[in-house]
Design a protein around this nucleic acid. Structure first.
Length: 162
DNA sequence: GCCAACGTTGGC
DNA sequence: GCCAACGTTGGC
């Protein structure tokens, strides 16, 4: 099984929005980057876990999600009304793909990027690299387990040494 | 608001 | 096919 990070601007689609979605599940649509597309189309499997990451003013990991449907065509690319319409996308060649993810657990409080950066164990993590702009990216197993452990530790947000 | 990093576009 | 120009992302 593999681990992933799903980025979203909360003003566009937040963890709250996911929590309010039917079955707390959403299609991860609108991704228009080939590398991210390939991850969703080729690599993600049902049961893979990922973090829901909020980018923007207060960057943070907001919760845990699970892939519940594997890559399938992102039909919003073929909708002229859609924000990420791509005239080159057709039913024969959909060009863009998405997966469905379901909310597993909200992190309360969320784990701020500042706190992540403070962790020696997370040095070199892709997400924390400057200029990391992929909206969907893999997360190393070690980093995943470490962060998950942080989320389960009640003291992590207050403990200076964490 | 600034700026670095990155992807895409288009001229040649 | 190269590369400069440009637009976008996203942390700070």
């Amino acid at each position: 099984m593999r681990y992933w990070i799903f980025k979203s601007e909360p003003g566009c689609f937040s963890l709250d929005d996911l929590a309010k979605s039917p079955k707390q599940t959403t299609a991860w649509d609108g991704v228009r980057n080939y590398q991210a597309r390939n991850f969703m189309r080729d690599d993600m499997k049902v049961g893979d876990l990922g973090f829901f990451y909020h980018s923007g003013k207060t960057p943070e990991i907001a919760g845990l999600v699970e892939v519940v449907r594997e890559g399938y065509p992102d039909h919003t690319a073929q909708d002229p009304e859609a924000e990420h319409f791509d005239p080159a996308a057709t039913p024969e060649n959909p060009r863009w793909y998405m997966v469905d993810v379901r909310l597993v657990k909200r992190f309360t409080p969320p784990i701020s990027r500042t706190l992540l950066r403070r962790q020696a164990a997370l040095q070199g993590m892709e997400l924390l690299k400057q200029g990391s702009r992929l909206s969907v990216l893999p997360c190393e197993e070690n980093a995943f387990n470490y962060i998950r452990h942080m989320a389960e530790s009640p003291e992590f947000s207050s403990d200076e040494n964490f």
